[in-house]
Amino acid sequence: MASSSQPRPVAVVIGASRGIGRQVAIDLASEGYRVVVAAKSTSDASKVSPFPPDPNSSESTINTVQREIQEAGKESLAIEVDTRSPESIERLFQKTYDAYKRLDVLIYNSGAIWWAPVDRTPLKRFQLLQSVNMEGLYSAVQTSLPLFEKNGWNGRIIVVSPPIYSRFFKGKTAYAVGKVGMSVLTKGLAVDWKRQGKNNMAITSIWPATAIISAATPDSRLLPDLRKPTIFSDAILEILKSPAQSVSGSLVLDEDFLRERGMQDFSKYSVVPGSSPQRIMPASFPTLAVAEEDDEGLPASSVGEITQRDSRI
């Protein structure tokens, strides 16, 4: 967080109308960020009763989240965005810059879910998944880069996407294509920034180790195995406080990251007090690295030609 003599940092949270995104936006605001709450769902927050609404219901929108933040004495701006539309994403960042003249943090929490085998996933469903997940993220990242440049290449991007491992693909290939693609973007962009000397920029992917209560978990029988979204937002805040190069390119789990930072007791996150939610993620993951990690996979002469060509662009 900035000191009193510096402008307060600005965070854009895409997919912030309910659930995890709402919690992240509220907690960022409590940490002193000016928060842009972005998603498709809007409403007249002044007419919502009771207030605040159920955070996992359709009554929770970017406007009610903005109102929650403002009533807590913090600063927030609600901007409608459709992540399937590059033009809508461009408007989001233009309005953000018009309002605050800076961008410090981008969190991409928007996502479409469809768990089914390939033969039960129509092409249109596949295209929807990719447009919201992978393409929406790519568009948001591309559009945000000029704002990070104006900020002296000091900033963070947090992506809600999983570690890369084989079990994740099973039974939900179309969904996995996009979500794993988001994690590949995290890995690749981190390498780009390191090569370019942008050492104050970091991109990190984060995923829940245990299921988190949301609109996607409506069955009350699941409650003992669910955690509150505060575990996710606490992990994100801890990522943002970590040195950029220590987290850039990392694909982390919320619980594991907090545990590495010294947390031992996770009981406060259980939806049902006293319960011990079952972990849904593996205990460890493949590193993905190979012995030839620094080899581009091309003949040395080709690498030289590509480097020379890129330097002229």
Rank of each mutant, 00 (worst) to 15 (best):
266 F>Q: 07
291 A>R: 12
256 D>A: 15
236 I>G: 00
244 A>Y: 07
286 P>E: 03
275 S>D: 01
241 K>F: 04
225 D>S: 13
278 Q>A: 13
260 E>A: 14
223 L>E: 09
284 S>N: 04
266 F>Y: 07
290 V>Q: 06
227 R>Y: 12
301 S>M: 08
242 S>N: 10
230 T>I: 03
246 S>N: 13
247 V>W: 01
223 L>F: 11
249 G>Q: 07
272 V>P: 05
247 V>F: 10
267 S>Q: 10
236 I>F: 00
249 G>R: 06
250 S>W: 02
280 I>M: 13
232 F>V: 06
230 T>D: 15
283 A>D: 14
242 S>F: 01
244 A>C: 08
226 L>Q: 01
278 Q>F: 02
232 F>Y: 13
249 G>A: 06
271 V>C: 10
228 K>N: 02
297 G>A: 02
298 L>K: 14
267 S>N: 09
240 L>A: 08
282 P>C: 09
243 P>E: 05
275 S>F: 02
233 S>H: 01
292 E>H: 08
281 M>F: 05
276 S>D: 12
247 V>M: 14
254 D>N: 03
282 P>Y: 07
300 A>W: 11
274 G>I: 12
249 G>P: 00
268 K>Q: 14
239 I>W: 04
263 M>E: 13
267 S>T: 13
222 L>Y: 12
255 E>V: 11
217 T>A: 01
237 L>M: 11
235 A>M: 08
269 Y>M: 09
246 S>H: 08
260 E>G: 09
252 V>D: 01
257 F>W: 14
276 S>E: 14
230 T>S: 15
297 G>M: 07
279 R>G: 01
292 E>T: 12
273 P>N: 14
262 G>A: 05
269 Y>I: 09
282 P>K: 02
252 V>H: 00
231 I>E: 02
249 G>L: 06
230 T>E: 15
229 P>M: 06
263 M>Y: 11
219 D>G: 08
254 D>I: 01
243 P>V: 06
237 L>H: 04
273 P>A: 13
265 D>I: 08
243 P>I: 07
250 S>G: 10
262 G>W: 04
229 P>V: 06
245 Q>V: 03
294 D>W: 13
261 R>F: 07
276 S>W: 04
299 P>D: 13
251 L>C: 04
225 D>C: 09
237 L>D: 05
260 E>M: 08
224 P>N: 04
300 A>C: 03
256 D>Y: 10
277 P>D: 06
262 G>H: 07
269 Y>A: 08
246 S>K: 14
247 V>S: 10
243 P>Y: 03
277 P>V: 00
239 I>G: 01
267 S>K: 11
264 Q>H: 07
234 D>Y: 00
270 S>F: 05
263 M>V: 14
243 P>N: 09
259 R>P: 00
220 S>Q: 13
288 L>H: 10
292 E>S: 14
258 L>H: 03
247 V>N: 05
233 S>T: 08
241 K>L: 11
253 L>Q: 05
287 T>E: 12
301 S>Q: 11
277 P>L: 03
222 L>N: 14
258 L>C: 03
234 D>T: 11
286 P>D: 04
285 F>Y: 15
292 E>K: 07
271 V>F: 09
268 K>W: 00
263 M>S: 08
231 I>R: 04
239 I>C: 06
269 Y>F: 15
